[in-house]
Every structure is written in C-alpha cells, then in structure tokens.
C-alpha cells in the first residue's frame, strides 16, 4: 500500500514539474493536486508506522517546486509577442506586390 502511494505521488509530482516548465504550464496544477493528496496519505501512513523517510522529503520538495514555478508563471509572467520582424517584412513586400496587382483590377459598379 505504502509503495503504491509513494509511486503515484512521485509520478504525479514529476509530471507536475515537467508541465510547469512547458508552455502549457497551467495544467501542471492537476498532477500537483494529485501529488499533494497522495503525499498527505503517505504522511498519514508514515505517522501510523512512526517512520521518517527521505522519500517523503524529496516528494514534498518536488511538489513545492512545481507549484512555485507554475504559480510564478501564472501570476507574474505576461504574454508577449516577439520575433515579428519577418512578418513585418513579408507584409511590406506583399503590399508593394498588391498595389501592382490592384492596378489592373476594377472596383465593382
């Protein structure tokens, strides 16, 4: 039982940490919540058996790290557009070509 809970908690925490580093970081909250729940279950199991494990500490660290990164990105990073030079150049060239094309086209009557 303890082994299963530990595995699920670890997998969830690692998935949360990976998601928190990706552009789709917002969905990291879901595996993080699962990791927290299983972490609580593991803590209760440890309390009953009166054991102190390093695994539990590592798990807590992973959860805190993923939640911190995700929350920081959600609340403190702004969505910005960059690398638009190419599209601007493309537009300028396209307009010049369009003017030439438009010379032979007639407005509707």
């Amino acid at each position: 039982m303890k082994k299963l809970v530990t595995i699920i908690a670890f997998i969830s925490a690692i998935i949360a940490l990976i998601f928190s580093l990706l552009p789709i970081y917002i969905i990291a909250y879901y595996p993080a919540i699962v990791a927290v729940l299983f972490c609580v279950i593991l803590w209760k199991i440890n309390q009953k058996s009166n054991t102190k494990s390093t695994t539990f500490k590592v798990l807590v660290f992973l959860i805190i790290a993923s939640l911190s990164i995700t929350s920081y990105r959600v609340f403190f990073t702004t969505s910005e557009v960059s690398d638009t030079k190419n599209i601007q150049q493309k537009e300028q060239k396209s307009e010049e070509e369009a003017i030439e094309e438009l010379e032979v086209l007639e407005l509707e009557e």
Binding site: I24, V81, I87, E91, E95, I99, E103, L107
Partner: peptide, 24 residues
C-alpha cells in the same frame, strides 16, 4: 492604399502566438 486610379482600404489580420508558445 493608393493606386494610380483609386484609394482603397487595406484590411489586415495577423495572428501571432505568444513567445512562450513559439518553440511549441
């Protein structure tokens, strides 16, 4: 936009992903 015979209206639509999604 001016041509030799008329002044037209250019309508432009651009869609640009945010930089965080550019690599994705």
């Amino acid at each position: 936009v001016k041509t030799s015979t008329a002044t037209l209206l250019k309508l432009k639509f651009t869609a640009t992903t945010f930089s965080k999604f550019d690599n994705f």
